[in-house]
Design a protein around this nucleic acid. Structure first.
Length: 355
DNA sequence: TCTGGGGTCCTAGGACCC
DNA sequence: TCTGGGGTCCTAGGACCC
């Protein structure tokens, strides 16, 4: 029996929440993201702002050049989490098996709800209307026999889209779309495939083993070609797993030259990380410091302990150690400093050896 | 135009153990 | 004197995602 997987994607989510909280913004170009006077980038642009060519990840300064009249708002994650929870509570009440992937998207396993494409369409149209009525937010849905097809389908007719790909029609549905639309193909792989003359998902799907090996000689290559053919065995996994890492980072408004200033920022970031670690009920065995230099190269150095800790002074000490190692490798100026913790264990195992 | 902040997963090489 | 093989853990870097 073919699987029926749906993908839910909230439309322009951060901007939509801001409009919901301030209806005077309705229909206006709203840009949620970093500081347009500094080094900020766009997180989410409302559809009115997208008409000016503004999109996610664009420098906010460039967004303002394209639309000087746009309303720029800093992200308010607590607010977005609150609205996101409302949406997922509604969905969970109707579909028991869901895998939330981010704050604004997730997969639904519809195996208990529908058996045919027609059934899926009716079911999702009702769910879409229910989400809208209960939360005031629009979502787009895609549906098909696997995650890859469902995800691309949810993006195919935004906003308020609803695209159901019937079983057996996966490959033709995907074939004409650009390679970069395939989840797993980013800037590097996309460029590589483009250099090889590939343009569409169909081009990748058509590669035989020998050509595939020549173009993408990695384990990942076969998986990507399978997905391009509409084959993707990943299940909808409703069990969420605990975080693997917790971190904070900061891009400075101007590059920082002074090591003692960097050390102060490292202390502050380490304290923030420790707060979250403790609220999570965990301890950490490794503290990693990340530096981004003006040329955008990234360097990271780690410091570990044999006894997992959630002690602020100890985490600050390890961060300082890692920072000095990194700076010994390459001195300032530095554009970004980050501190993260890994090798996490439950608090009950604190002060027990981690290895 | 000049590029955020939160993550996950994978890989390669070295250390270490048996 | 010259030399194993497998397995695991750790670090650093990189691709990718939202």
């Amino acid at each position: 029996m073919p699987r029926v997987v749906a993908h839910l994607d909230l439309d322009a989510f951060f901007a939509a929440v801001e409009v919901l909280e301030d209806p005077s913004l309705e229909g206006r170009p709203v840009v949620v993201g970093g500081d347009p006077d500094g080094r900020g980038v766009v997180s989410t642009a409302s559809y009115a702002a997208r008409r000016f060519g503004i999109h996610s990840a664009m420098p906010a300064a460039e967004a303002r050049r394209r639309c000087p009249g746009a309303i720029f708002l800093p992200p308010d994650m607590d607010r977005y989490r609150h609205h996101s929870r409302a949406v997922w509570d509604v969905v969970r009440g109707i579909v028991p098996v869901i895998e939330q992937v981010g704050i604004d998207e997730g997969y639904l396993d519809l195996y208990r709800q529908v058996w045919t494409a027609g059934g899926a369409h009716r079911f999702l149209a009702r769910l879409q209307a229910t989400v809208r009525r209960e939360t005031g937010l629009d979502a787009s849905f895609g549906c098909g026999s696997c995650k890859t097809v469902a995800k691309i389908a949810s993006d195919a007719d935004k906003p308020r889209g609803l695209v159901v790909v019937p079983a057996g029609k996966e490959a033709p549905f995907l074939a004409s779309r650009p390679l970069r639309a395939l989840p797993g193909i980013g800037p590097v792989t996309g460029e590589r495939l483009s250099q090889a003359g590939l343009v569409t998902i169909g081009d990748l799907a058509a590669l035989d083993d020998a050509l595939l090996l020549a173009v993408l000689p990695t384990d990942h290559g076969r998986e990507l070609r399978d997905r391009a053919r509409g084959l993707d065995p990943r299940e909808v996994n409703a069990r969420s797993s605990p975080a693997v890492s917790i971190g904070h980072e900061r891009t400075f408004p101007h590059d920082v030259d002074d090591p003692s200033v960097l050390a102060e920022h490292a202390d502050r970031l380490a304290a923030l990380v420790t707060d979250r670690l403790r609220r999570d009920g965990r301890g950490a065995g490794t503290v990693t410091v990340k530096l981004r230099y003006p040329d955008f190269t990234i360097r990271s150095r780690a410091a570990s302990t044999d006894l997992a800790t959630d002690d602020e002074a100890e985490i600050i000490r390890l961060a300082g150690l890692a920072l000095r190692r990194a700076l010994a490798d390459r001195p300032p100026p530095v554009r970004l400093l980050g501190v993260s913790v890994t090798r996490l264990v439950p608090s009950a195992q604190l002060r027990l050896p981690t290895r």
